[in-house]
Structures are given as C-alpha cells and as structure tokens.
C-alpha cells in the first residue's frame, strides 16, 4: 500500500489507542504490529510527528521499579483532531467501499 497514505491511517490508529489510555511507545508498537502488517519501528516516527503537531504530549513515569518509561498522552487538540479525522476517514472508507463493491454495475 502507498506509504504516505498508510502513514495517515496509522496516525489515526495510534490516536485511537491513546484515546483509551496513555501508553508508552513499545505498547503502541506491539498493539499495532499485532493487527497491521508494518515494520515494528514505524510507530516511533508517527509518535514523534504527532508530538510535534501538538496532538500528543509525553511524560516520564517510573512504574514497576524499572527505568522511567516515556508515556504518550493525547492532548485536547489531539482528541478534537482524532474525532474530526475519524469521521472523515470513516466517511471516505464508506464511499470507497461502495465504489469498489459497485465496480461492475455497468454490466447489470
């Protein structure tokens, strides 16, 4: 699939995970690569882009005694953007689906 296109969709997926709860990078990477066939390392550039766009923030947290982990958290702007983009994407996907399912309607 076109990487540029995939990137936009992956951003949306990452935001949907962060909407539920704050996560550290590895969690998101694991979760996504379980469902989507992408290289494990792709998530980190996405997280960084989301951060520089102000859609997520990070904070360090030391749970379970290990080294501090960098948690990602969706900002208010992130929530807003996520809801808007999600609606847009789902609409778009619906239209594409109709078009693709209907590809042979000329033959009818």
């Amino acid at each position: 699939m076109n990487t540029q296109y995939k990137k936009g969709v992956l951003e949306l997926c990452v935001m949907s995970i962060l909407k539920r709860r704050d996560c550290y990078g590895y969690e998101i990477s694991e979760y996504l690569s379980k469902h989507i066939d992408i290289a494990d390392g792709t998530v980190y550039p996405i997280l960084r882009k989301l951060k520089s766009d102000g859609l997520v923030t990070t904070y360090l947290s030391e749970d379970s005694g290990g080294p501090p982990r960098k948690y990602y958290s969706l900002t208010a702007l992130g929530f807003e953007t996520y809801e808007a983009d999600k609606k847009e994407y789902l609409n778009f996907a619906k239209i594409v689906e109709t078009l693709l399912e209907d590809e042979d309607y000329d033959k009818k």
């Binding site: 690569s33 290289a39 494990d40 390392g41 792709t42 550039p45 960084r48």
Partner: peptide, 13 residues
Amino acid sequence: AKLGNPSELASQF
C-alpha cells in the same frame, strides 16, 4: 529485522 531498515526509518522522521 522486525524493526525495519534504519535508513528507511530515519527518513520517516
């Protein structure tokens, strides 16, 4: 190997 190609990853940043 699963992380992906370093130069490709770097370009995504």
